[in-house]
């Protein structure tokens, strides 16, 4: 027993020393720019590795070479519940989040505000390649996967079908983790899915599915994700919030113009296939995702709220003024000055 404890202790101490010596980070070996770096205050911004949230790592990238005092560190998460927890416990002070979930959190008492959007469009309805679905009506009575019941994909489809007069119990919405959607479609477990990029593109590239609708065809200027900021940050560091929103806006403008470079940057940050990202970002007509015009409107949010209440996922109609704070949005947005060099 003693022998065992000693071995484990020795192992532990070795690991700890290796870790703290930082031998394992690239910077240690490259003996990088020891230029006098100003100590920047770090603010964590959460996101998921999806194309919709691309403005987040881009902002991270820009803020590394910024002239302001804040560095926005993009923290990658894999599911929204964890992000929700993180912002509740103030581990994150700002994050990208699906819009309906932001409503839900607010109604549960988490002090957050929506300050901006992450993107517009960027989601597609995908069906099996060799199916003969032609329109939304064909989806009645089928299984449709959505990333979460609190996603705008769910809300929007629901509203659309209702408008067309269908009984919504006729459609089976299945929440699935997005990476599993292409396989689920291929195996026939679902008949369609509606989710943000890059998963629709993946299904196309793997020859498993085809686009039935682009989100822009269902709901023009489709909103999926919003920028959520904790009220404490707004109160204590409003200039940081201003910087963040400006960073996102300018990143968006840059993304819009420099799609190929953006694909390279995203591939590095997200650890994803660069060809896939190029396919998504460089699609021209029709465009698959848009990063400009990120100012939300009250009408859009009210509509989302309404649908949520109808479905029963949101308790009540929210006073949009209490949920939203658009004061940080810059009047003029110019593309960020980014020279992206592939590492």
């Amino acid at each position: 027993m003693f022998r065992l404890t000693v071995i484990l202790l020795v192992l532990f101490i070795t690991v700890v020393s290796v870790k703290s010596a930082g031998i394992l980070s690239a910077s240690f070996w490259k003996k990088e720019q020891v230029e006098k770096k100003r100590v920047l205050e770090k603010i964590n911004v959460g996101h998921l590795p999806v194309t919709c949230h691309l403005t987040c790592p881009v902002t991270d990238y820009t803020s590394k070479t910024t002239t302001t005092e804040y560095e926005f560190v993009s923290k990658r998460f894999f599911d929204f519940p964890t992000i929700a927890n993180a912002i509740q416990s103030k581990d994150l002070m700002a994050t990208m989040m699906v819009a309906p979930l932001a409503f839900k959190l607010k109604q549960d008492g988490v002090p957050i505000r929506i300050c901006y959007l992450g993107h517009r469009d960027g989601s597609q309805v995908i069906v099996k390649k060799n199916s003969n679905y032609k329109s939304i009506d064909d989806l009645v009575g089928k299984n449709i996967a959505v990333p979460s019941l609190y996603s705008n994909q769910h809300f929007v489809l629901y509203a659309l079908l209702k408008e067309k007069g269908y009984d919504v119990s006729d459609v089976n919405f299945i929440p699935l983790p997005p990476p599993e959607m292409p396989m689920a479609l291929a195996s026939g477990a679902i008949d369609a899915f509606f989710v943000g990029e890059p998963f629709p593109a993946k299904a196309e590239m793997e020859d498993v599915g085809r686009v039935l609708y682009l989100s822009s065809e269902i709901w023009p200027d489709f909103i999926s994700c919003v920028l959520v900021v904790h009220e404490d940050l707004i109160k204590n560091k409003p200039d940081a919030v201003k910087e963040l929103v400006r960073g996102i806006a300018e990143s968006g403008a840059w993304l819009e113009e420099n799609r190929e470079q953006a694909a390279n940057l995203a591939a590095e940050y997200y650890n994803q296939d660069v060809n896939l990202l190029k396919y998504i970002l460089m699609a021209k007509s029709p465009q698959r995702v848009s990063y400009i015009n990120l100012q939300p409107s009250y009408a859009e949010f009210t509509r989302i709220n309404q649908i949520g209440v109808e479905i029963g996922l949101l308790d009540r109609m929210q006073n949009i003024n209490e949920l939203v704070d658009l004061s940080f949005i810059p009047n003029v947005v110019s593309p960020a000055k980014i020279e992206y060099k592939k590492q």
Binding site: P49, F78, T82, P178, P179, K202, Y270, N271, Q272, D273
Partner: peptide, 24 residues
């Protein structure tokens, strides 16, 4: 680690899966 961390073996698997890189 898949949910609670930003590094480690579990996180790496989850990351690879989310990046659709099952070989990794």
């Amino acid at each position: 680690e898949m949910v609670g961390s930003q590094d480690g073996l579990g996180y790496a698997i989850w990351d690879a899966r989310n990046g659709l890189k099952l070989d990794v």
